[in-house]
């Protein structure tokens, strides 16, 4: 009677186990790479109903972030401006531009311009803009250099790890409150930033929560 299995079959169980380990490693790597916000969210740059350029309005003209996002210091939500805010200038500047037709229609009818939200944390995350802005965390830390963007692009991952990096060690990302909307400012522009930051943290009792309930309820 001939043998049912060749001699090489003796090695098979070990080879299968090694393959499964390699396979699991590949699956883990692929999940880490593709199923995280670094891949799913970063780079999102939708086409808006009006091709508003932050590079022009903020970067070139120097209009402060808070001119339009006027509630960011007071509330948890950084508001999209009313169309009246646009009309403050655009009732005279480029008042007949076809690109601004949705804004004019909104101003007359009272219905909002259907802007598309880009930065959005999941509904189980409670992020508060005002507490960050009033404690020296600039817009640029989470939104990137919006002052250089023709079209706003989702620049940072806003993943939980991203939040925790700063909550564990806020000092390098803090800045004086009068530089809060200066998106080109870097700590290198300040002499002895680490000393200033340590003092700022002590004075304002900054203790970013690292427990679950800090951000999840």
């Amino acid at each position: 009677m001939s043998q049912l299995f060749p001699k090489s079959a003796n090695k098979l169980p070990l080879q299968i186990i090694i393959f499964l380990i390699v396979f699991a490693a590949v699956v883990t790597a692929a999940t880490t790479y593709y199923a995280t916000p670094e891949y799913t969210r970063v780079g999102y740059a939708p086409v808006q109903p009006v091709p508003f350029s932050h590079a022009l309005h903020n970067g070139q003209l120097g209009i402060n972030c808070r001119y339009c996002h006027s509630n960011v210091e007071k509330t948890g939500f950084a508001n999209i401006p009313t169309s009246q805010t646009c009309m403050n200038c655009h009732n005279q500047i480029k008042a007949d531009s076809p690109l601004l037709a949705p804004v004019r229609a909104s101003y007359e009818s009272g219905n909002p311009v259907p802007w598309i939200q880009i930065h959005q944390v999941p509904d189980y995350v409670y992020f508060n803009h005002s507490v960050h802005i009033n404690r020296g965390v600039s817009c640029v830390e989470c939104h990137g250099q919006v002052n250089e963007m023709e079209t706003v692009r989702h620049e940072k991952s806003l993943s939980m790890g991203f939040c925790l990096d700063c909550h564990r060690d806020p000092a390098p990302r803090l800045r004086p409150l009068d530089k809060i909307t200066d998106l080109n400012w870097t700590p290198a522009q300040m002499a002895e930033h680490d000393k200033w930051a340590a003092d700022f943290i002590a004075r304002n009792k900054i203790a970013p929560p690292q427990s679950c309930t800090g951000c999840h309820r």
Partner: peptide, 8 residues
């Protein structure tokens, strides 16, 4: 990662 896209 990081490619610019208009897809949600």
């Amino acid at each position: 990662r990081g490619a610019t896209s208009t897809n949600p």
